[in-house]
Write a protein that binds this DNA or RNA. Structure first.
Lengths: 329, 329
DNA sequence: CTGAAAGCGCTTACAG
DNA sequence: CTGAAAGCGCTTACAG
């Protein structure tokens, strides 16, 4: 900037202002400065700007694991929003709340590296003490999972309850009466809502808990079979567990959907590729990411108050495929 | 830091040194300072450090799309490496080389926001002018795709050639003779090598080009069927195209593997879930990410020279599943 | 083992 | 419409 100023024969003040546009600059001077900037390929040093203004224009995103389809979509959405508003995003996989990692990422907030955080809870609804403290003084938006005890924070989630209701009604309308629910981590609000929504149609459905992975759907069905539990409807609280369950059923010679109807939740790519296609509820993870990012940045820029009043719950869509059919006689 | 210094009755110089350990500090003084730091919850301002030292301890990662399984794995790997070495990573989806976005992310390098870049080419082997210029003065490591014209840069890739050879030999040993190859973008080195490796066993294999997506595998097979092309072996140059091809074959009443054997490349999650399971070559994307990140950071810290001499090619593994069988008589 | 002071590259009151 | 100067919070020669 010094160089530009010297070359243009003006003060750094003027150079700064022609860039920022925060005060009028004589048109021909501005033009000359801009040309020099172009010529030198000058870009302002972000660190120095940060130091002066106190804002880095970078936000953090903490998700359990970016490499999962589900969180990858959120990340992409946050990134899109940030890109639009001229922010950068630092991605942090918390590895299911590895405390060391969480701490490290929270520190980014404290070192002022990032201006705010989009946080996706991974396993538990009860936040770590660190998160609570952090949330009390830094801008945080919860994506995908609301955290009841952090009720001051805005969250962007899917309408899990309605989606689950749809699923329950769909299978009830097909004449099913004996159902099993494979839920994800019991500590997540989304899971509680999904179970509740399903149980509206199947009040006595058995509920088992897994970890959202394919393998756990597979294993839970093994348990059910070993115990000789009878059911004609199986609700996976995410697609992966549902698909794992389908695999296990097939291995046991139980046909989907003739003997057992299976549904999932998410609509991951895989859901339309397996045989039969998986009936599920589509969540718009990309949009969850976008909204979270936008909400956070608007909060940072003072355009929005970052309170739970800003929370949104996005609509979901029932997607019926081949894995559901009328209950066997 | 001022506060800490005042409270401890020492200079900021001493506080700075007890934190950095760059010069001896009297043990009891150090102890006192450390206690105060703990008590105040003090963390050094990253922007100020950056401004002084010129290094941000943040690296950038530019991939076509973080939300794709493939790139998500790379991202996770880079993040792991960065985390280990106490760096942060800013993720940037280039949306298949959207020039506006690329430019924006390259600017991060120029504003000194990031110290270096891990770059994954998306579509073309010929880099944009911007990339070339950038690479000549900033630390860049190529992940997953080497770029021949940027031969000064280190790259971390899979051994695409060997993997493709394995696939070709596998199908040749099963008695296949008429093969079709569905390649990804023709402009990528990985694709050229895969085609070359396959053609070692099937010199006359027909090569069609797609865009790596499920849909394009599907569409390309539609074309083949419409043209009445006869083949018993189909090579997808990635799993998604192979799976799309399988879907189209099934719709046409062509059985896999009885009538046509299908193979992919990558070993995505889906590959083991489809019916039949997809024979493929497993790439360790996580490791590609890890190595790229580590290589870049080591280069930044001067422990390695960032030249093509540092390039590595990682071993791959043939995974045989149900989609391949002996050629029909 | 310790401190005073310069300076990294910006932004922004203050003054004109 | 413009400039001189303070200061953001650190690190690091320089001096002791």
């Amino acid at each position: 900037m010094q160089q530009i100023a010297a070359a243009a024969g003006v003060s750094v003040t003027t150079v700064s202002h022609t860039i920022s546009g925060k005060r009028p600059v004589r048109p021909d001077t501005a033009e000359r400065v801009r040309r020099l900037i172009e010529e030198f390929g000058y870009v302002p040093d972000s660190g120095a700007q940060r130091l002066k203004t106190g804002r880095s224009r970078i936000i953090g995103l903490a998700v359990p694991d970016v490499s999962h389809w589900y969180f990858g979509r959120i990340a992409r959405g946050v990134e899109e929003a940030a890109d639009e508003l001229d922010y950068g995003v630092i991605v942090a996989s918390t590895s299911n709340s590895d405390p060391r990692r969480e701490k490290r990422y929270f520190n980014m907030l404290r070192t002022r590296l990032i201006d705010g955080l989009v946080y996706t809870a991974s396993r538990e609804m009860t936040p770590t003490e660190e998160l609570v403290k952090l949330a009390s003084k830094s801008p945080v938006v919860l994506a995908d999972e609301a955290i009841p005890s952090l009720d001051g924070l805005p969250s962007v989630t899917s309408d899990n309850y309605v989606g689950a209701q749809d699923l329950g009604r769909h299978l009830a309308s097909l004449g099913h009466t004996r159902a099993v629910i494979l839920s994800g981590y019991a500590g997540l609000k989304s899971q509680i809502e999904r179970v509740k929504g399903i149980r509206e149609s199947f009040p006595n459905a058995l509920v088992l808990y897994g970890d959202f992975e394919l393998r756990s759907g597979y294993d839970l069905v093994s348990d059910l079979l070993a115990q000789d539990v009878r059911f004609t409807a199986l609700f996976g609280c995410n697609d992966l567990m549902a698909i794992g369950a389908m695999q296990r059923l097939r291995e046991a010679g139980i046909r989907v959907p003739e003997d057992v109807s299976v549904v999932g939740f998410d609509d991951v790519d895989m859901a339309s590729v397996v045989t039969p296609g998986l009936t599920t509820v589509r969540q718009d993870m990309l949009e969850i990411g976008r909204r979270s990012g936008r909400l956070l940045i608007e909060g940072l820029e003072g355009r929005t108050e970052l309170t739970s009043a800003g929370s949104v719950s996005l609509p979901v869509e029932l997607v019926i495929r081949g894995s559901t059919a009328t209950a066997p006689a």
